[in-house]
């Protein structure tokens, strides 16, 4: 196959979908798309929309080439067909996706640490990831996107692990957003495989051979902020969050922050130096920007906090029940467990922020339903 690893991704908002793929040859890459009702015998029409790559170059394996492109001006509630490739390499088979409603009730799916390649036996882990993902898609009602909270792979430059992470069909039919984990950071492979919208050039950036970059997007009427928690420059992350919320918070009904290293986990990493640094820096930024929900991974255990305040303290009277009514400046934090089952960490009881923990070493996912009135996070395990 001349074209490999195609990934459908979120764009800056629901009118845009990003794509990335690897190609045998360099240059000439493009994405072509059209509404499904314009397909002719299953093929895209000659006058299908097309867009050239916005970024491309030699892949980290020094053999293939990475390609990024975007489909733009998409209409809501519409079935689209697309393919990526080039004249030289040929094009992928036509794939389909559906755009979401505009401002109605929506939902998205969240996954912790697929970490394909960890825990011994790549095949079992890849199978576990595929099973959780397909179960989640079957459980949800037309999820608008998939949100993976970092450590997609175990070894940052391992292309086989990326191929396994990207193998499920949903990779090509439901947009996804990713977070950069500590296992993803030490290679440019992450930046090459994923075409993220609105990546900051000045906040959370990677290095010459490492990946990084804080970024944001709006989907389901929610402003999603995504920071590279491998980067220890907390002032830069805070500036990014302050600036994006000031500029775009008014366009969204809720604000969600995602990053890899959970600051309120109930497992082994809770006392790590990098986690403690984040735990000091994030709560005041979350409070002053009225971030509603924070989602993280890293500790391979599921928990949720009480409502938390800007000093990192549980809000008095917060019960961690089925309903949480927040005042401005209060935030709920979720830590997601492994979605593949590749590994789990030991439960640490008695931490101040623990509202509820589930620590039975089962892969799980979280379904978040969005309406004007509520963000409802329902978590399921996949035995």
């Amino acid at each position: 196959e001349a074209i490999t690893d195609p990934v459908l991704q979120v764009g800056a908002d629901s009118t845009t979908r990003n794509l990335s793929w690897m190609s045998e040859n360099s240059g000439g890459g493009e994405v072509r798309w059209a509404p499904v009702n314009e397909l002719e015998g299953g093929e895209l029409p000659a006058d299908a929309a097309a867009a050239e790559t916005t970024d491309s170059g030699l892949a980290t394996d020094l053999k293939r080439h990475f390609n990024h492109a975007s489909m733009t001006d998409l209409e809501p509630d519409t079935d689209y067909a697309y393919q990526v490739g080039s004249d030289e390499d040929g094009f992928t088979e036509v794939q389909q996706f559906t755009t979401g409603s505009s401002g109605g009730d929506d939902e998205f799916l969240v996954f912790g640490d697929p970490q394909v390649g960890a825990g011994g036996g790549d095949l079992g882990v890849a199978t576990g990831w595929e099973r959780t993902l397909s179960t989640a898609v079957a459980t949800a009602d037309d999820p608008s996107f998939l949100y993976s909270l970092g450590d997609q792979v175990n070894s940052a430059g391992n292309q086989e692990q990326y191929a396994q992470y990207l193998a499920p069909e949903a990779t090509r039919t439901i947009p996804q957003a990713t977070t950069i984990g500590n296992h993803d950071v030490s290679s440019k492979a992450y930046e090459q495989h994923f075409n993220r919208p609105n990546v900051s050039q000045d906040h959370g950036g990677g290095g010459i051979i490492t990946s990084g970059g804080d970024y944001w997007f709006i989907e389901d009427g929610v402003l999603f902020l995504n920071i590279n928690s491998n980067s220890s420059d907390m002032d830069a992350h805070a500036e990014f969050i302050d600036e994006v919320v000031a500029e775009h918070g008014g366009q969204a009904r809720w604000t969600v922050l995602g990053f890899h290293h959970s600051i309120y986990s109930t497992a082994t990493h809770w006392n790590d130096l990098d986690v403690k640094r984040l735990r000091k820096a994030i709560p005041p930024v979350a409070a002053r920007n009225d971030i509603d929900l924070v989602v993280s991974g890293h500790d391979h255990i599921f928990n949720r906090t009480f409502l938390m305040d800007g000093e990192g303290k549980p809000v008095e009277g917060s019960e961690a029940g089925a309903d949480e009514a927040k005042e401005d400046g209060q935030t709920l934090y979720l830590t997601l467990t492994s979605s593949s089952g590749s590994k789990f960490y030991d439960y640490v009881p008695g931490l101040d922020w623990e509202g509820k923990s589930v620590h039975n070493d089962m892969p799980a996912f979280t379904r978040v339903r969005v309406s004007d009135e509520a963000l409802r996070a329902t978590t399921y395990e996949v035995p």
């Binding site: 989640a136 929900l293 309903d323 927040k326 005042e327 996070a377 329902t378 395990e381």
Partner: peptide, 13 residues
Amino acid sequence: TAEQIDDVELRRA
């Protein structure tokens, strides 16, 4: 089969 382990609805007070 997925089995529910948590459910929380976050609203504004």
